[in-house]
Simulated scan of single mutants.
Amino acid sequence: MLTELLQGTDAGGFLIIQDSASYSGRHLLKSFINAALNREEAVHVLGFEVSEEELKDGLKGSPVQRLHFHNAYTDPLGWTDQPSFTVHQFCLEELTRLVKQTSHPKPATLVIDSLSWILRHVSAPAVCKTLQQLRKGGAVRAIMGLLHVDMHQRGTVGSLCHLATSVITVAPGMKGDEAVAKITKRSKSGKVVQDEEIFSIKTDLTVVVQSKPSQLGHKQADPEEQETDPTANLTFNLRLSNTEREAKEKLALPFVFSKEKKTALLHSSPGSGRILYEPDANDDYDQEDPDDDLDV
């Protein structure tokens, strides 16, 4: 599924790469940027955490000409007289103006590096509103964002992931050059597909999907995580033997009627009793007017 997401077939998508202090997702984000440039797409990067030189490190060749870096790393809060891009410009009008400055005919891909930096200075509802407006406005083809999950509360992360069409959570693998990607993809029909893959990133930012963690035999479960039998040390037996199980199946329950008993109850025998009612003279029953004795 990671290879499918790198192909970028879904237009109007919102991809979030979740990382933590144990493993950085920026290399995977750069792989997505490289894949978009190779598809001849224009890519606009809002750079808050790294400089333009560091971001373009590894992105070599002519596709870099379609990479537009908006420098929010030097002066993210606008303390100087002429800031390039500030966090306060993270709104629909400013972002649309930035994207439409280029003469590329196709809608561009917007990359946010990172959403965590913006969330430190802009409220989560405002960030979600801007992202939703960008998705529906048509100014960008797709949105990609890096999110450091260990910097935010669970509700903030959940709100952003609810807007995303795909979420990739990265973690370190068993080997030094391997990483684990837990992927959640939501289709337009609402179907949710989850997958887990082991991948590595080459020096040219090519992603190589190696295998699934379930296919590896060297990862053993911890003894505390193994399932224990709660009936192991009981003084009585909760299981039935084959003989006891057969006797239980043959036992007739007191409130379950057999076929013979149902027949006997539904069909009366010749000697069974009946209740006969003969009207008395004091009944004063008139067949033509049954309600004659009522004072109505």
Rank of each mutant, 00 (worst) to 15 (best):
L163F: 13
L216N: 07
Q18Y: 00
L115S: 03
H27C: 00
F85L: 11
D81T: 09
G12D: 01
K100G: 01
L67Y: 04
L15T: 08
D222M: 13
T9A: 12
L28E: 03
H104Y: 10
V170L: 03
R274P: 01
G271S: 10
V192C: 05
K182R: 15
S166W: 05
A11D: 09
D10G: 02
L146N: 07
A221M: 15
K191C: 00
N237G: 07
L216E: 02
H218D: 11
G13R: 15
R154S: 14
G78T: 11
L67E: 01
E278K: 06
P107M: 05
E244T: 05
K202D: 05
T169S: 08
L29Y: 04
L6T: 02
T3L: 13
V43L: 06
H70R: 08
N71R: 13
M174I: 12
Q194I: 01
K60P: 00
S241I: 05
E4S: 13
C161Q: 11
V140Q: 07
T130I: 05
D113K: 08
S214L: 07
S62W: 08
T109E: 01
Q215E: 09
L92P: 00
H68L: 03
S51D: 14
D293S: 15
V45D: 02
A232E: 09
G47M: 04
A21M: 08
K60D: 01
K188L: 09
G271V: 06
K188A: 09
K175E: 15
M151E: 15
L2E: 03
G158W: 04
E196W: 04
G173C: 10
E225D: 15
A164G: 02
L266W: 03
Y277N: 10
G8Y: 00
M151F: 11
D195T: 04
V192G: 04
V64H: 00
I16T: 09
C91V: 07
S159A: 15
F14H: 09
T231R: 10
E93L: 12
L234D: 05
H148M: 01
G12P: 08
D177C: 08
H162A: 10
A232S: 09
V122A: 06
G176D: 06
L59F: 00
